[in-house]
Simulated scan of single mutants.
Amino acid sequence: MTGSTFSRDELVEAFAVFEQTVDRAASTRDWDPWVAQYTDDVLYIEHAAGTMRGREEVRPWIWNTMETFPGSYMTSFPALWKVFDEDTGRVICELDNPMRDPGDGTIISATNISIVTYAGDGRWCRQEDIYNPLRFVKATVKWCRKAQELGTLPDEAAEWMAKVTR
C-alpha cells in the first residue's frame, strides 16, 4: 500500500485507540473489541499460526490463543517503541508480552514486532506479527520453572511444560 491519505495525526490517534482497546481486552479477557478494530476483510499474518483472511477467521484464533496457556497468562501487550509511516499508513512496533507474576514479583516476557496498516475510520486492514516462536517457548518454560519452584504452577501450565520439554 502506498500513497496513504491519512495524516500523521490521524495515524497516531488511531493507533492510540488501538492500544487502548488491546489493553482493555487484555484486562477484561474479552477479545471481540480487539477483533472489531479490523476491517471485515483484514489480512492477518501470524508467522507461527499462518495467514487469516477476514475478522471471522481472526476471531476464533485470537480467542483460542489468548484463552489457552500460555496466552491466557499474558497480562498486557504494551508497545515498547513504535514508528508511524504515514506514506503507507502503517505502524511498526515492538510489543511486549509479559506473563502473570508467578508469585515472587518476577516479570517474564517475550516480544514481537507487529506491522499494522490503517484503513481509516478507526479500522485496520492488515497486521503482521513477526517473532521467533522459540523465544516465546523459552520465556514460557522459564515462567513454568519459576512457578514450579514457588509452588504456584497451575495444572494447565504443567501439562504444557511436559509436552514441550520432552
Rank of each mutant, 00 (worst) to 15 (best):
T2P: 01
S4Q: 08
R8Q: 04
D9E: 11
E10H: 01
E13T: 14
F15M: 10
A16M: 01
V17M: 06
E19R: 09
Q20S: 12
Q20M: 13
V22Q: 13
R24D: 12
A25P: 01
S27E: 15
S27W: 11
T28K: 07
D30C: 08
D32C: 08
P33N: 07
A36Q: 02
Q37H: 09
Y38W: 14
D41V: 05
V42L: 01
V42K: 04
V42C: 09
I45E: 14
I45S: 13
A48N: 14
M52L: 12
R53L: 11
R59E: 08
W61R: 06
W61P: 00
I62S: 00
W63M: 00
T65L: 13
M66T: 09
E67M: 14
F69E: 04
G71M: 05
G71P: 03
S72G: 10
Y73Q: 09
W81N: 03
W81C: 05
W81D: 04
K82Y: 01
V83T: 04
E86Q: 13
E86N: 03
D87V: 14
G89T: 11
I92S: 02
I92G: 02
E94S: 08
E94K: 09
L95F: 11
D96A: 15
P98G: 04
G103E: 11
G105A: 05
T106S: 15
I107F: 14
S109K: 12
S109N: 15
T111W: 11
I115P: 02
A119L: 03
G120N: 00
G122S: 08
R123F: 07
R126G: 12
E128N: 05
R135A: 10
R135Y: 14
F136V: 13
F136T: 09
V137I: 15
V141E: 11
V141F: 04
C144Q: 04
C144H: 06
C144G: 06
R145H: 08
K146S: 10
E149N: 08
P154L: 03
E156N: 15
M161P: 02
A162T: 09
